[in-house]
Amino acid sequence: MGEEGEEEMKRWLRRAEWLLLAWVLGHVTYTCIDGLRPYRGNADIAVVLGNRVEPDTTLSPVLKARVDKALELYRNGRVPRIMVSGGNGHTTKPGRVPEGMAMKRYLVAHGVPADRVIEDNDGENTYLTAKDLLPVADSLHLHSAIAVSSFYHLTRTKYIIRKLGFHNVHSVASNGFFAGDDLFGLLRDCVAFYKYMLVY
């Protein structure tokens, strides 16, 4: 390749880098606006997306903020039921509990009747949580839902729930903000959203 060809290649690489940067910034901006714009209506159920449970079975700060937001929705009469969905995590270790179980325990301890909380411990990822919502919605005749998670996670959550056929889904972000987790989550969802478009 001659000198002229190398220069042309460099120009194309620079253009590709700028296009990639513009795509990332555009996606991050939309994700922030969408995730931080709360739904103010009611729904048949709140669906809480899981996160880490501590070794002593308490909720991590990120997860506690999500569950507290669902608790707020329930106490304000905006949802009559809460579905808590997460993975099994490190439950092979003594004393550890699945995310769904830990979330349900927390809600019951804070006054939500056990029969108002649907526990799902098979929600290892967002797709599986969305998939697990469908039979719950069918059996309980649910027609609307509010997804509850960190703000950066809500665009992808609503997308996959709707893609699987449950269209009347809205979102409310937790009140917890964690600089490192949020930045990582925003960047991760730039990739994960398009993975969900192509794979599921």
Rank of each mutant, 00 (worst) to 15 (best):
N76Q: 15
D122P: 07
M103Y: 06
I82R: 01
A114W: 09
A102F: 00
P80I: 03
K131M: 12
A102G: 06
P113Q: 11
T91P: 01
A114G: 11
V97M: 15
A130Q: 05
A102L: 01
V79Q: 03
R96W: 12
G100E: 04
V117K: 08
E119Q: 14
V112W: 07
P80N: 07
N121R: 09
L128V: 01
P113A: 11
R116D: 15
V79K: 00
N125V: 10
V79E: 01
D120H: 05
N125K: 02
A109Y: 03
D115F: 09
V117M: 07
A114C: 06
G123S: 02
P94H: 06
A109I: 01
Y127V: 03
G95N: 05
T91C: 13
K131F: 11
T92G: 04
A102T: 02
H90I: 00
D122Q: 13
G95C: 03
Y127D: 10
M101V: 13
D122L: 13
T126M: 12
G123A: 09
P80W: 10
Y127Q: 00
R116S: 11
V79G: 05
N121V: 01
D115S: 14
V79F: 06
K104F: 02
A130E: 09
R116A: 14
G123N: 04
G95M: 10
V79M: 02
K104H: 02
L128S: 11
K104Q: 14
V108I: 11
R78F: 03
K104C: 01
D120A: 02
E119I: 07
K93A: 13
K104W: 08
A114N: 11
N125E: 11
G77Y: 05
K93E: 15
N121Q: 10
G89E: 02
M101D: 13
V84G: 07
T92N: 14
R78A: 04
E119L: 11
H110L: 01
R78W: 05
K131A: 08
A130R: 06
A109Q: 14
I82W: 03
V112T: 04
D122T: 10
N125D: 15
A109L: 12
T129P: 00
V97E: 13
A109H: 12
N121H: 09
V97N: 02
A130I: 10
A130F: 06
N76P: 08
P80C: 09
P80V: 10
T92I: 12
M101R: 13
Y127W: 15
A114P: 07
K93Y: 13
M103P: 00
T92D: 14
N125R: 12
I118K: 03
R96D: 08
H90C: 07
A114V: 12
R116W: 04
M83C: 09
T92Y: 15
E119C: 15
V97H: 00
K131G: 03
H110I: 07
R81K: 15
P94F: 04
R96I: 05
R116Q: 13
T91W: 09
V79I: 12
G77A: 04
M103N: 02
A114F: 08
A114Q: 14
I82S: 03
R96K: 14
G89W: 11
T92H: 14
R78M: 08
P113G: 08
N88S: 13
